[in-house]
Computed example of a mutant assay.
Amino acid sequence: MAGLDRGFAAHIAQGVTTLCHCWQVTRADGAVFAFTDHDMPLVFNGVTFRADTGLSARALAQASGLAVDNTEALGALSDDAIREDEIEQGRFDGAEVQAWLVNWADPAQRQLQFRGSIGELHRAGASFRAELRGLTEPLNRPLGRVYQKPCSAVLGDSDCRFDLTAPGYAETRVVETVAEAQYFRWTAFPGYEEGWFARGRLDVLEGPAAGLWGMVKRDYPEGGQRVIELWQPIRGAVAAGTRVRLTAGCDKRMETCRLKFNNLLNFRGFPDLPGEDWMMAVPRSDGANGGGSRR
């Protein structure tokens, strides 16, 4: 019973207990969802844990090493709880999860059993299955610099340090025409050269898909219109009249960093690394051996 409140430990030691599980899911946008497998709602920490969601959980496996703590939450989709469209839109991806073992007769007696995040989330008919990952999961990510010719930074991050709010690098517009939530067209788009937003992103600022975004695959003129094509459709309804924000893209080349963004000081690539031809070069008795092709 190490680590348990004395009253809670005494309750468990009785043999006949009034225990249940409670789960709290906090999404990146701040929305909070709370559930319990008890047959009545419970309240603690200022949160009401609902009992009518059909949520349940499998046994929790935890380890002391860096192996991923894992369990699964199983539940039913409900319009006023976890909705199918929000799962499809990825709004629960990476959400924080906390799980308690609670004495439902006295919710002040409880133990936090799990804290982590949602990993893979699958939908099947009117139900869902969510993989839960422990706090050690981020420690399994590889860290360190990658030695490559292109820049390894993400445009606008702490390594790049470029201010994307600078004039000319972000544009907020109202959608004129959209097809399949992937092809956006405007009749007039002055001030930006062709391809300016390629490899950038499109953020939806309002409507049912507010908060969702997509990476720009192509930015090109066609039939007197400016077309912004995304790699994948926005996973939500985007209609004409919706405000979106376009952010300039970067192809990670040193020339682009210098000429388009004037940010060469923070370039994180190694443009002078020798190529594979140079590494495979063999000694020659005549002329210079630079590793290039012979003509």
Rank of each mutant, 00 (worst) to 15 (best):
L4R: 02
L4W: 10
A9M: 06
A10T: 10
L19I: 05
Q24R: 14
V32G: 08
M40E: 07
P41R: 00
L42P: 02
V43H: 01
G54H: 01
S56R: 06
A59N: 07
A63P: 04
A73R: 10
S78K: 15
R83D: 11
E84W: 10
E84A: 13
D85W: 03
E88A: 11
Q89Y: 05
G90E: 02
R91I: 04
A95F: 10
V97Q: 01
L101V: 10
V102W: 00
D106A: 07
D106S: 05
E120Q: 14
H122Y: 14
H122A: 15
R123F: 00
R123W: 03
A126T: 13
R129Q: 14
L135N: 04
T136K: 14
L139C: 08
N140T: 04
G144V: 02
V146W: 04
Y147W: 06
K149L: 00
V154Q: 07
D157E: 03
R161H: 07
V178I: 12
A179L: 14
W186C: 09
A188Y: 03
F189C: 03
P190I: 02
Y192W: 14
A198R: 12
A210R: 11
W213H: 04
W213S: 12
M215C: 15
R218N: 11
Q225A: 14
Q225L: 08
I228M: 05
L230K: 05
Q232D: 15
P233Q: 01
V238E: 00
A240K: 07
T242F: 08
V244C: 12
V244Q: 00
R253Q: 14
N262E: 13
N263V: 02
L264V: 08
L265W: 14
R268D: 10
D272Y: 11
D272V: 12
L273D: 06
D277P: 09
D277T: 10
G287M: 02
R294T: 15
